[in-house]
Amino acid sequence: METIPPPQIFYVESTRVACDGEEDGVAGHPRVWLQMGSEGSADCGYCDRRFILTGGPADPR
C-alpha cells in the first residue's frame, strides 16, 4: 500500500500569498492567491501546499 506524502510547508511573512505549484522544475498549476485568516495558515486547493505565517498561531516552531 502506497502512502501519500504530507503536504509541503512554506513559512511566509505575509498573510496573502500566491501559489503556482512550480518549484524545482516541477509542472505547476494556475497561479492562485491565498488569504490567511485568524488561524495563520492557508492551503492551496491545487497542490495541497500549506503556507504558515511565521510567528502566527499555526507556527509550531
Score class of each variant (00 low, 15 high):
Met1Phe: 09
Met1Glu: 06
Glu2Lys: 13
Glu2Met: 10
Glu2Phe: 13
Thr3Ile: 15
Ile4Met: 12
Pro5Ile: 07
Pro6Val: 05
Pro6Phe: 05
Pro7Lys: 02
Gln8His: 11
Ile9Cys: 10
Ile9Thr: 15
Ile9Arg: 15
Phe10Cys: 09
Phe10Gly: 02
Phe10His: 14
Phe10Pro: 01
Tyr11Cys: 01
Tyr11Trp: 08
Val12Thr: 06
Glu13Gln: 10
Glu13Ser: 12
Glu13Gly: 08
Glu13Trp: 06
Arg16Tyr: 06
Arg16Leu: 11
Val17Gln: 02
Val17Leu: 02
Ala18Asp: 12
Ala18Asn: 11
Cys19Leu: 07
Asp20Cys: 08
Gly21Gln: 07
Gly21Val: 09
Gly21Leu: 07
Glu23Pro: 05
Glu23Cys: 09
Asp24Pro: 00
Asp24Ser: 14
Asp24Phe: 13
Gly25Gln: 04
Gly25Asn: 10
Val26His: 07
Ala27Thr: 08
Ala27Gln: 07
Ala27Glu: 13
Gly28Thr: 02
Gly28His: 02
Gly28Lys: 01
His29Ile: 07
His29Ser: 06
Pro30Trp: 03
Arg31Met: 14
Arg31Thr: 15
Val32Tyr: 06
Trp33Met: 13
Leu34Lys: 03
Leu34Phe: 04
Gln35Glu: 15
Gln35Ala: 14
Gln35Leu: 13
Met36His: 03
Met36Pro: 04
Ser38Thr: 13
Ser38His: 08
Glu39Lys: 07
Glu39Tyr: 01
Gly40Glu: 01
Ser41Asn: 11
Ala42Tyr: 04
Ala42Met: 03
Asp43Thr: 15
Asp43Leu: 13
Asp43Met: 14
Asp43Tyr: 09
Asp43Cys: 14
Cys44Ile: 07
Cys44Asp: 03
Cys44Ala: 05
Tyr46Arg: 06
Tyr46Trp: 14
Cys47His: 03
Asp48Trp: 12
Asp48Cys: 11
Arg49Cys: 15
Arg50His: 00
Arg50Glu: 01
Arg50Thr: 03
Arg50Lys: 02
Phe51Met: 00
Ile52His: 04
Ile52Thr: 11
Ile52Val: 15
Leu53Phe: 03
Leu53Tyr: 04
Leu53Lys: 05
Leu53Gly: 07
Leu53Arg: 09
Leu53Asp: 01
Thr54Leu: 11
Thr54His: 11
Thr54Phe: 10
Gly55Tyr: 12
Gly55Phe: 09
Gly55Pro: 07
Gly55His: 09
Gly56Cys: 02
Gly56Phe: 02
Pro57Ser: 08
Pro57Gln: 09
Pro57Gly: 09
Ala58Trp: 00
Ala58Met: 00
Ala58Pro: 00
Ala58Val: 00
Ala58Arg: 00
Ala58Asn: 00
Asp59Pro: 05
Asp59Thr: 04
Asp59Phe: 03
Pro60Tyr: 03
Arg61Met: 10
Arg61Gly: 12
Arg61Glu: 12
